[in-house]
């Protein structure tokens, strides 16, 4: 059996591959990122899907998307896919709501405000 070459590895399976220096960047998570994290935690605690479901969607998104999207961009992509698969809402409902959200304004605070009556 021939040794598996690096090109046979899935793109997330990067242990042992060459890479540059560790850039010790850190940032405080933005509200939208914390909300994605909370959606994941609540979804798994309710049994809507599992962490393995999250991983499966992320590991199927393709190498270009994996490399270019930020961490919580990958997560909301995967959370959404799993929630649709679980029947929480339909792709049509999501598309309509995304269109409505984007129509509210130009930035995150404005567009998410409609869901937060306490901010009114």
């Amino acid at each position: 059996m021939s040794k598996q070459s690096e090109t046979d590895l899935r793109y997330h399976d990067m242990g042992g591959l060459p890479a540059g220096p560790v850039e010790r960047s850190e940032h405080d998570y933005a509200l939208w990122e914390k909300r994605v994290d909370a959606l994941m935690v609540l979804s798994t605690s309710r049994g809507l899907f599992t962490v393995d479901g999250l991983r499966r969607a992320i590991e199927d998104m393709g190498p270009d998307a994996y490399e270019t999207r930020s961490y919580y961009e990958r997560w909301i992509y995967a959370v959404n896919r799993n929630l649709i698969e679980a029947g929480a809402y339909t792709p049509d409902e999501l598309a309509a709501r995304m269109e409505a959200v984007a129509a509210r304004g130009a930035d995150y605070a404005t567009c998410s405000r409609a869901a937060e009556p306490s901010d009114a």
Binding site: A30, E33, R35, Y77, M98, V101, A102, Y108, C111
Partner: peptide, 21 residues
């Protein structure tokens, strides 16, 4: 991390929509 005052991104839009639904 830029978020509140930057143009809304596609993925932020998805987060808001998923949460509201």
């Amino acid at each position: 991390r830029a978020d509140q005052d930057e143009p809304l991104t596609y993925w932020q839009t998805m987060e808001i929509a998923v949460r509201e639904l």
